[in-house]
Design a protein around this nucleic acid. Sequence first.
DNA 1: AGGTTAATAT
DNA 2: GATATTAACC
Length: 515
Amino acid sequence: MRLKENNHGDQFPVGMRVLAIDANFVCLKYLVTVLQQCRYKVTATTDAEEALQILRNKNEEFDIVITDVVREDIDGFKLLQIISLEMDIPVVMVSANDDVSNIMRSIKHGARDYLLKPVRLQEMMNIWQHVIRKNLDNPEKSSITKEIIDQKTSTLKRTRNQSTKEEDESTKEEGETNTHPDIASSSRKKSRMTWTQELHEKFLDAIQELGNEEAVPNTILKIMNVPGLTRENVASHLQKYRNILKKQKATMNQQKNGEPNLNRNSTNMHGCYTAYQSTSALPSNIHPVNLVPNSEELASSKQLYQYYMQSRQYPMEQGMHNHVYGNPPSTPLPTENYLPVPDFKLLKFPSVFPGIKVVDGCLGISSGPSNTPPFSPSIPDVCYIPSTQMLGDNASTQIDAISQHGLVAWPPQYFGPGTSLYILSLEHWQHAVKNFANEPGDTNCERKNIDLPDYMQDPNLTDLKGKGKVKAVQNFPEHPHMESGFHQYRNSLTDDELTMMVKEVKFNDDDPPKL
DNA sequence: AGGTTAATAT
DNA sequence: GATATTAACC
């Protein structure tokens, strides 16, 4: 555990050791993602017994435990009770249930906090304070507390008499008192920074925003606004980034292929997914949808990608395009040519899109190739994509799914390079749907005068409406009252993520999707 | 001071 | 070998 200063000069604990517990695998994965975004060191399990074992084992020490409330094996409250009885470690509860009695019960049993699912990044960035507070009276107990205090004192010293760097270092290393130097130093190990997909995306966004001239470490750091990230981290990453650009440029020149494509779709950094060019054809009379679930050959992300590209050439895309601009097909899609979409109910988006930025509690989702709905101001696809293309075949089933689980499942042909995923806050997603979908029969969005919030009425977007091709819109205007009202996630699935999709499909071995 | 580059460590 | 950290240079 160590502290780093972010660009505001605040301290933030990097590598705080968190044990995350959630019975639901998808929720757990999501939780882990958020925690990792906070740059905590996360250990995770779905199994409460295992969690207790880990904690009792003491091989690994933890600063804080985060657990869900509703569980089948050991009730969250029980778990909380055991932990607070046996050991001295703060516990934070996470639950989709906002019942006051539940919250009270948790607090009574010793919970430090009670967060509602899905948890937000900002909330998670604050939990380290519980660790500090817990150990204020006994700093040696926690290395993180100790380090913050150390840092505080050394900062004070520095401001008091401009102490030298060496002095500062020695103060940090040996501690103020020297009474328990071993305790503090033994549990302190520097965690090597890893540039996650999300961080890299942020990095790229910053660079794009700044342009080549202005893209220097400190400025990038400021734009990225990631707690704990240092100028050195960014500088290092920038160095690597530039090296890769140089390399690519060199090979491009060799091939005389014009401008190098240096955007995130083609970058190789950190295993970002690189688009495959292969166009091996599928039999034209078989819709690719039907090739997915029982296909043993679909063992690699490459194949999944190929499948995805194939599927986009089929009529359903035409159908979708019809929907895009508010003209649902007068006749149903020729579904007789398609077999039902297999059951991908396991495939919930946070498990597939760990880089997702959660905006405003529960989310509505709108998805499609880059020239589909979200660019039209009416966002119709949430209600018009036919059931052969989307699980939960209309808006209301999606609303139900969202209100119940905070999640919506999508078939995998929507994931892959070329797919944009848009996340709207529940508020304006509902708003759009309410004006749109809840009146069966009246499905013409041209006639409906949809009263979208101003910030969504961006003229650039409106202008794009009706045009055949739309390029990805950068820097979508954000809701003034929201941290971020509208996020785009695109073209950056890692191989692992794609592989995982395949795995999720295969998990259904005992109950294979019917074709 | 901080951007850049190179050396070193993991 | 790749990439993060640290040092050194400008």
